[in-house]
Simulated assay, not measured.
Amino acid sequence: MDRQPTLETERLVLRPVTEDDREPLYEVASDPMVWEQHPIHDRWRREVFDRFFDEGLASGGTLAVVDKAKDRILGSTRYDKYDPEEGGVVEIGWTYLERRCWGKGINREMKRAMLAHAFEHVSLVEFRVGDTNYRSRNALEAIGAERTDCYELERYQGKRVVHLVYEITRDAFEAGPLA
């Protein structure tokens, strides 16, 4: 599966992120409100963002989200862990968008394109989201993702971080709200 495709929708182009995207993406990420419910709540700080950006660039799956009409970066998202075994599974996540995109259907449009691409190659897509990130949890549920019984524990700045695991199967996608 190509984890850095170029995908086009009515309003968006999702394309592989490059080093040239660092500053426009930091402009989006530098708004503390973007991260207020996120477990890593300080990605608006330059040094934290730069580590996050470098990790995303190295992952080989990060996409810039670009407004087609204005040719302007709105945020970023990523295809991550990919396992081709048993029908295949890929993870989608690390999504952040500038606030003026919230509630405008941008995330839904982007996820529809990403899921359609993923389901050409896998039978399951997973998402991991912080347990207190209600904005992202609601967005996932609105696109048909279902919370599983799985979760992951990490630590950040000495505090426990819980990530819940959501998923969408190919069949659920084809019959769900994004069909």
Rank of each mutant, 00 (worst) to 15 (best):
W35E: 02
V129T: 08
T77C: 08
G87I: 03
R22N: 01
A58V: 00
D54C: 04
S76T: 02
L140T: 08
M33E: 15
R72Q: 11
R135Q: 10
A58Q: 12
K111P: 01
L97A: 09
E146C: 13
D71E: 13
W35G: 06
D67N: 11
E141P: 00
L12R: 06
E141Y: 07
T132N: 13
M114T: 08
R137W: 05
D131M: 00
R78L: 01
L57I: 14
G60A: 10
F119W: 01
T9M: 07
R112C: 09
E141F: 01
I143A: 09
S76Q: 02
E98V: 07
M114I: 06
G144P: 12
C101Y: 03
Y26C: 08
K111N: 05
E86F: 01
S59Y: 01
V125A: 00
V13T: 15
G87F: 02
G75M: 04
F127Q: 06
C150G: 12
A116D: 14
I40G: 01
E86S: 11
E152T: 07
G93C: 07
R43W: 14
Y82N: 05
F53W: 10
A139P: 06
D149S: 15
V122R: 10
I143H: 12
E152Y: 12
V125T: 05
F52D: 14
F119G: 03
T95H: 07
E141N: 05
A69L: 09
D20G: 13
T148D: 12
L140P: 00
S30W: 13
G87A: 03
H38F: 13
V90S: 01
E10M: 12
E146R: 15
P16S: 05
G56D: 02
E98T: 13
W44A: 03
D131N: 13
E23C: 08
G103F: 10
C150Y: 15
V89P: 07
L115D: 07
E98Y: 04
E109V: 00
T62M: 12
M114P: 08
A69Q: 11
T62I: 08
E85Q: 12
G93D: 01
L115F: 13
K104T: 15
L25N: 03
R46P: 06
M33Q: 15
G60Q: 03
G144H: 09
C101M: 14
T95R: 09
R100F: 11
D71Y: 01
N107T: 00
T132W: 10
L25K: 06
L153D: 13
R99Q: 09
L140W: 00
D20P: 03
P84V: 08
A69Y: 07
K104V: 09
C101D: 05
E85Y: 03
D149M: 13
I40F: 13
L97E: 08
G144E: 10
D20A: 15
N138P: 11
T62H: 04
W35Q: 05
D50I: 12
G130W: 02
E47L: 11
V65F: 06
R43P: 00
Y151N: 14
A58I: 06
G130H: 00
W94Q: 11
P84M: 00
T9F: 01
G88F: 03
P32V: 11
